[in-house]
């Protein structure tokens, strides 16, 4: 099993109620699921815990057999480099690097940079004309495609996408999601897509819904 969560709970110091309450589910390699829920239901928090960006208060969370609660900061950083790829809603590109350098960046961090794979990805994502541009010179849709290419170039086992189409219009969102699912499907990685959109969630084979921190 690629991902296993068992009764994961998370509370923030400034909130009385838990943001996540005893969340449990599993995800197999190559499986794709949509995670939906109202604002404040805990979707992003759950994604951050899985991505090793934050730590759970209780419960167990294992990726590819590794228990995240046993990892220190450096261990979680290694997990983010090598196993998990996160696509952020705000893209989080490095503004001082051009498109080509941004795409290669995470793969270089992970020590598995393959220029041929970068070229294949930029072909598929229609970024070949923008390789020497900087993020500020791109539209939102283009920036999100760069972010997807950056994540997939590092060949993660699990892709986490936090509302990757949240800042895009409907048509662009559809295109971006199609490319994302297609490319993830080709790599055999797992995908968890956080989204508000029922329409987009319906395009993935499996769906989980969070309400007030609990899976329903």
């Amino acid at each position: 099993m690629l991902l296993r969560l068992h009764e994961v709970t998370k509370t923030y110091p400034d909130t009385e109620a838990a943001v996540l309450r005893e969340v449990s589910f599993t995800l197999a390699g190559g499986e794709m699921l949509a995670l939906t829920g109202e604002s404040g239901s805990g979707k992003s928090t759950l994604l951050h815990l899985i991505g090793g960006l934050d730590t759970a208060d209780s419960g167990t969370l294992a990726i590819d057999g590794t228990d995240l609660s046993a990892l220190d900061d450096a261990g979680r950083a290694a997990l983010r480099r090598g196993t998990v790829g996160v696509i952020f809603q705000q893209f989080n590109l490095i503004p001082s690097l051009n498109v080509a350098a941004n795409i290669a960046f995470q793969a270089r961090l992970a020590g598995r940079h393959d220029p041929a794979r970068d070229r294949a990805l930029t072909d598929r994502l229609g970024l070949n004309d923008h390789l020497h541009k900087y993020p500020e010179q791109l539209s939102g849709g283009q920036q999100q495609r760069v972010a997807i290419a950056r994540t997939l170039a590092a060949q993660p086992k699990l892709v986490l996408a936090d509302e990757p189409t949240g800042n895009l219009d409907e048509a662009t969102a559809d295109t971006v999601l199609s490319v994302l699912t297609e490319l993830v499907g080709e790599t055999g990685a797992g995908l968890i897509l956080v989204t508000h959109s029922e329409r987009l969630a319906a395009r993935l084979p499996r769906r989980l819904h969070l309400r007030a921190g609990r899976l329903t």
Binding site: A74, L79, G82, V86, N92, I94, Q106, L109, A110
Partner: peptide
């Protein structure tokens, strides 16, 4: 600051 956060989110160890 934003760049540092991104680098860390992408797996660059803080130390």
């Amino acid at each position: 600051r934003a760049m540092v956060r991104t680098l860390r989110a992408l797996g660059a160890p803080l130390g």
